[in-house]
Design a binder for these strands. Structure first.
Lengths: 336, 336
DNA sequence: TTGTATGCGTTATCAG
DNA sequence: CTGATAACGCATACAA
């Protein structure tokens, strides 16, 4: 493999002009049957593949798809990425990932960097609630939002059913006789926390149960603070008999908190599944989102959008489902 | 933002030739102080950034770095990726990820795809033991191997101390009085399993303990089979009093197996840390690898190599450390 | 210290 | 149905 074959090489070997090769490769314009055969043979013989840089320069955009996420090390995001990547790759394109690292400024820079590379489109999980820069045309290509709603403008979106999933969790606990159910989650300003809290609230209200302020914590940013919140609630007056944790990180903390007080058998449902949930004792009942499906769906939306940029934005909400494992089926057990 | 500014636009605004702009941007060749000021002002005003496609076409290679991994959804790989991405991004370059999905054929295709894009270099976790195609010049750019040793040719490599870590784990259990220690891991054909087994074996031998065939399982590919292996060992004659699991997935299965038999307090050390290890009861003692550091190191090697392609291949082995949490400090407890 | 001209490999225009 | 040629934006040999 001394030098890479170019259109010209193929043209020479096939005895036609480079434009004809281009036509065969891209399926543009009519080509005679016999010519096409000759050209294909030449392409195979030389192992020709078009140079993406040259094409990008000429047509003004790359055929890679950019992915902007907060943190690839987050298991949910990593799995989402796997779904996206497999679909995009199956379409013969590449994924270029960039992390914003929870910093809106970084995120903006990442998007600009991708825009500058003229990616064909971007799949984005915006960090901040205010991504006005996106509306200002920082990205001039198709945009698909995942796990975050579009705020200031409308575009293709894939979400999972945050509210419905949380309602499911609460209804499950209520069905098992619980009347004092706590909610432990990340900052309420986050889109997902907010919707999950609404679902929780709706289920309690529908069952005629009060939503008690001291049973709601939405300021928990890591496992440690979730564990602390759990301890405080259990130690306080009127402790809950069941806890819903609103995301995987919080769940780990809640579990730690519960394990420290093994005498009180408090029921627990986690929003979002996590590795090892079934290895715990009791195994953790969870509301399962399907990050792989979310990723695939987002990628499909993108591919369709690239194919046909017109048409109204589509908003897809993927269902969640309850996976019963044990921790969510514990009966209410009054420690008082 | 109607059209993207080009060198020519900047040149016109600054009243100099495009070559001068190029010199300022790339720091090549001498430029007069005052000229440079004027040029920089023009660049800022127009928001000019060089077009990567054009540059790539001209110089023959892109400045993005390719990353080839098996599966981005694997937590270890995801964290490794985070480390790589942050470093590469800090250097102003992008990471293009592709997954081989455990299929050597896919992996080869992924690498060819990257090679075709003329990435500046590739960071690779080769799936198969035989990656002869890499030696055959599929990749004509700098290569850095991570978490896998170079087999058929020599190149920059970052590994963690698999053997030392496993020895650490075994020595720890031995120090706590264990004499019947089992090893549960993935296929022995895998590089990491093999080295970890060697470390385990070395520690036992050094302590004058026998390595019993029925205490060694190296055919465990998922948590389910690890759980089954654990059950079988505990139920068999001469059950072990401690288990070392050789990777995170196996650990989850071993834990499940142990939880099913809560009467037997078997000690356990996991090679590789995992999310939730400290939320379990007992919390799991682990040999911690540092995937973030591995990623950063690999990225650094790559950046240095891009800067200076000459020089001998470097092989870096990162230390592992034991994190004591409880499960590894249980005393031997004879169930017979 | 600065400018001019050429070509990287592809696609698009327009003529044959 | 096919081909000659320009242009995309940049870097570089070469000239000034």
């Amino acid at each position: 493999m001394t030098r890479r074959a170019t259109l010209r090489d193929v043209a020479e070997l096939a005895g036609v002009s480079i434009k004809t090769i281009s036509r065969v490769v891209n399926g543009t314009g009519p080509v005679a049957e016999t010519t096409e055969h000759r050209v294909r043979a030449a392409i195979d013989e030389l192992g020709f593949r078009p140079n993406p840089a040259a094409r990008s320069l000429r047509v003004g955009h790359d055929d890679a798809v950019g992915l902007v996420i907060e943190n690839i090390a987050d298991p949910f995001m990593a799995t989402l990425t796997a779904g996206i990547e497999s679909r995009i790759r199956a379409a013969g394109k590449l994924v270029i990932i960039t992390s914003g690292g929870y910093e809106p400024e970084n995120e903006r820079a990442a998007i600009e960097s991708l825009a500058h590379r003229r990616v064909a489109g971007m799949i984005v999980t915006p960090t901040s609630m205010s991504h006005s820069y996106l509306a200002q045309g920082v990205a001039t290509v198709p945009l698909v939002f995942v796990d975050r709603p579009p705020i200031q403008f409308d575009t293709d979106t894939v979400l999972s059913d945050n509210e419905g999933g949380a309602r499911l969790a609460a209804e499950h606990l209520i069905a098992h006789g619980h009347e004092r159910i706590a909610f432990v989650g990340d900052r309420i300003g986050l889109f997902t926390t907010s919707l999950r809290y609404q679902g929780f609230r709706a289920a309690l209200t529908a069952a005629g149960l009060p939503v008690l302020a001291h049973h709601v914590r939405t300021d928990v940013v890591d496992p440690d603070s979730a564990a602390a919140a759990t301890r405080e609630m259990l130690a306080g007056d009127d402790p809950p008999t069941a806890i819903i944790s609103a995301n995987a990180r919080s769940s780990l903390g809640v579990i730690r908190g519960l394990h420290e007080e093994p005498s009180s058998m408090v029921a627990h449902v986690s929003f979002d599944d996590f590795e090892g949930a079934e290895s715990l004792s009791p195994p953790v009942t969870v509301v399962h989102q399907d990050p792989i499906a979310m990723g695939r769906t987002a990628a499909d939306l993108m591919l369709e959008r690239l194919d046909d940029p017109s048409g109204p934005p589509r908003h897809i909400v993927l269902p969640t489902r309850l996976i019963v494992r044990g921790s969510g089926e514990l009966p209410p057990c009054d420690p008082s």
